[in-house]
Computed example of a mutant assay.
Amino acid sequence: MPPIDRYAIESGCSDEELLAVTRVYARDVVSEHDLTVSVGDLEWRLSTRAKRRAGMVRYRDGEPRSIVLARRQFENRGWNALAATIRHELVHAHLLNERGDPSHGDAFARLAAELETHVRCERFVDPRWWVRCVDCGDRLARYRRSKLVERPEEYRCGNCGGRFRVVRNE
Rank of each mutant, 00 (worst) to 15 (best):
A20K: 14
A20Q: 14
V21G: 03
V21F: 01
R23I: 02
R27K: 13
V30Q: 08
E32H: 09
G40S: 09
E43C: 03
E43Q: 14
R45I: 00
S47F: 06
S47I: 07
S47T: 11
T48C: 05
R49G: 04
K51C: 08
R53C: 09
A54L: 03
M56N: 14
R58F: 01
R58Y: 09
R58A: 09
R58N: 14
R60L: 05
E63Q: 12
P64I: 00
P64A: 05
L69Q: 04
R71A: 05
E75F: 07
A81I: 00
T85W: 04
I86S: 05
I86Y: 03
R87K: 15
H88D: 05
H88G: 08
L90P: 10
V91A: 07
H92L: 06
H92I: 06
A93W: 05
L95S: 13
D101K: 14
D101P: 15
S103Q: 09
S103Y: 06
H104M: 08
H104C: 06
A109C: 10
R110P: 06
E114R: 15
L115F: 02
L115D: 02
E116S: 15
T117K: 13
H118A: 01
V119A: 12
V119F: 07
C121D: 14
R123H: 11
D126C: 03
P127T: 00
W129I: 04
W129R: 12
D135L: 12
D135T: 13
D135S: 15
G137N: 12
D138C: 02
L140E: 10
L140N: 07
R145P: 06
R145S: 11
R145D: 13
S146F: 04
R151Q: 12
P152K: 10
Y155R: 10
G158N: 07
N159L: 07
G161L: 04
G162P: 08
G162H: 09
F164R: 11
F164N: 07
V167W: 08
R168C: 00
